[in-house]
């Protein structure tokens, strides 16, 4: 009885349909999937152990919960995920907040320019 289950094979009615079978998308917004994918990809390539990220995530969530009501509208799981990832990258001297903020300004400026051109 050691045969893999046939429903796990890649047929159109099988696994491909599955994550949505319960009527929910996995991510609420595209940036969440990028944050998830980047963090997992870097742990898989050995830049850090996933548990290192998890420990920082627990700390972020814990801090939020100590300072907010549990039904606060401001809850965003992936906001904590992103903060934990940034902290880990900063600890590893791979990326710091200043660089990120500078790049945000550059991208925002670029987006504004594009927006402006469309209305010329």
């Amino acid at each position: 009885m050691n045969t893999p289950i046939d429903i796990l094979s890649a047929d159109a009615t099988g696994p491909a349909a599955l994550p949505r079978r319960n009527g929910e998308l996995v991510f609420d917004a595209p940036w969440e999937s990028r944050a998830f994918g980047a963090a997992v990809a870097m742990s898989q390539s050995g830049m850090y152990r996933f548990d290192e990220l998890r420990d920082l995530l627990i700390a972020e969530i814990g801090q939020w919960e100590r300072t907010h009501c549990s039904d606060d509208d401001g809850w965003s799981y992936y906001a904590h995920w992103l903060t934990a990832l940034e902290r880990l990258l900063a600890q590893l001297n791979l990326l710091d907040a200043e660089e990120i903020e500078e790049r945000m300004r550059t991208i925002a400026r670029h987006q504004e320019d594009e927006h402006g051109h469309r209305h010329d």
Partner: peptide
């Protein structure tokens, strides 16, 4: 804001 921030992080990475 979060989408922009992640975009910046991804582009730097």
């Amino acid at each position: 804001y979060l989408a922009l921030r992640m975009k910046a992080v991804e582009s730097l990475l």
